[in-house]
């Protein structure tokens, strides 16, 4: 019911937009017609023009996400487990949180050149922090009674990590993953703005160069849909991993 109303709202909005643009004669350079955007989108997908770009962005996002999350998770485990390292690195981690990672893009282009590598690195760097932060928090939030239980049962440090801390911190860690997935798409697209040859972000820049607003809107739609798909996939993974009755 509410879903139907939301869908209707979208249709009304698009219809209003279309009618207004036609009646007022707004230039397609400023705001394109929705019908034109949909046609461009359809041509781009059916004609195969958009597919390689979609593939490149998806691949960059996936690689960046995998690398950033893996390293972020492992670093989080290390810092949570070794207090000395935590005290040593935490001020720097806090400081680096404030650095806008995308602003490092131009530097990465100097280091890694134009193309996929620098975009993957930016994406990985952006995904690294939410995983690091949430893994550290999750592992340190373990119920003290349960720690004492594991101590009483003479569990080794590794057993305590694998069988107590990681499972009990999993909800927090997966919440970090969900944040990372959204950031990964932003990272990949904006990374391509700066240094991409191919991909959806690079295509937006190319369309901008040709003053093709219609194509830019079509690309926005592709990016939004891609974002929704990966977010739903992450949320689904989270639901599946936490399918057992989890508390706290």
């Amino acid at each position: 019911m509410v879903r139907a109303a939301s869908a209707l709202l979208l249709v009304l909005l698009l219809a209003g937009w279309e009618v207004y643009c036609r009646v007022a004669g707004v230039s397609a350079l400023v705001v394109p017609l929705p019908s034109a955007v949909l046609r461009t989108l359809w041509d781009g997908l059916a004609g195969g023009y958009l597919l390689p770009h979609l593939w490149v962005t998806t691949a960059e996002m996936a690689m960046g996400l995998a690398a950033g999350c893996t390293v972020g998770f492992l670093a989080g485990v290390l810092l949570a487990e070794v207090p000395v390292l935590r005290r040593l690195f935490y001020p720097y981690i806090l400081a680096s949180q404030v650095v806008p990672k995308l602003a490092l893009g131009p530097l990465f282009i100097v280091w890694f050149g134009f193309g996929m590598t620098s975009t993957v690195v930016i994406t990985a760097l952006i995904c690294f922090f939410p995983l690091l932060e949430n893994t550290m928090t999750g592992l340190q939030q373990v119920d003290p009674n349960k720690r004492e239980l594991f101590r009483m049962l003479r569990a080794t440090r590794l057993q305590t990590l694998l069988r107590l801390k990681i499972p009990s911190g999993l909800p927090v860690i997966l919440a970090g993953l969900r944040v990372a997935v959204v950031l990964a798409l932003v990272g990949a697209v904006v990374g391509e703005f700066i240094g991409g040859r191919q991909g959806l972000g690079a295509s937006i820049i190319a369309a901008q160069g040709m003053m093709d607003s219609t194509m830019m809107f079509a690309l926005f739609i592709v990016i939004t849909v891609l974002g929704m798909i990966v977010y739903q996939a992450a949320a689904g993974l989270e639901r599946w991993l936490l399918r057992r009755p989890w508390k706290g």
Partner: peptide, 19 residues
Amino acid sequence: RGPGAQVGFVFQAPTLLEW
């Protein structure tokens, strides 16, 4: 000298692993 195998301990809260 530390927690031993010959001792069982029941805490005030059940302290079960929810997962």
